[in-house]
Amino acid sequence: MEGQSRTAARTARRLVHLYAGLVLYGASAALQVRAALGLDPWDVLHQGIAKHTGVSIGLVSVGVGALVLLLWWPLRQRPGLGTVSNVFVVGLSMDATLGLLPQPHSLGVRIPLLVAGIVLGGVATGLYITAGYGPGPRDGLMTGLHRRTGRSIRMVRTGIEVTVLAVGFVLGGSVGVGTVLYALSIGPLAQFFLRVLAFPQPSAERDGGEVVARGGRPVAEPAGGHAILHE
Score class of each variant (00 low, 15 high):
G54K: 14
G168K: 02
T143I: 14
A213G: 02
Q201L: 12
G215H: 10
L37K: 14
G216E: 08
A198L: 00
S61G: 15
L31E: 04
G187H: 00
L107A: 14
R151A: 06
G173S: 13
L81A: 09
M155H: 12
A166M: 05
H226M: 12
L189M: 01
T163M: 13
G122M: 00
A29C: 14
A220F: 13
E231M: 08
G91T: 13
S185K: 01
R78I: 03
R157N: 02
G132C: 07
V164M: 09
G63C: 09
G99R: 14
T143F: 08
V23S: 12
L100T: 13
G126E: 01
S185M: 07
V212E: 01
L107K: 14
V55N: 05
R14S: 04
P202I: 06
G215V: 04
A227G: 03
L197Y: 05
G117Y: 04
T158R: 14
L24Y: 08
V16W: 15
R157V: 00
L114H: 13
P41A: 14
G108S: 13
V90Y: 03
G173L: 03
G208N: 06
G173W: 05
K51W: 09
A190C: 01
T158N: 12
R154H: 12
E210T: 02
R14N: 03
V175E: 06
P135C: 11
L171N: 11
V89D: 06
P202L: 05
G58L: 07
S93A: 15
V180F: 12
I186H: 07
H230W: 03
L15E: 02
G209K: 03
L189N: 00
L141Q: 13
G58I: 07
A35W: 08
L101V: 10
V177P: 02
D207C: 10
G65P: 09
S85V: 07
T11G: 00
V87D: 04
V115Q: 10
R154G: 03
L120P: 01
S61Y: 09
P137T: 11
R138P: 08
Q191L: 00
A12Y: 14
T11Y: 07
I228T: 11
A183S: 12
R110Q: 11
Y133E: 09
H226D: 13
R214Y: 09
V87E: 06
L145V: 08
Y133I: 02
L181S: 07
A190I: 00
G172W: 07
I111Y: 08
G117C: 10
L107R: 14
A166W: 07
P137H: 15
L31R: 03
R6V: 03
H226G: 02
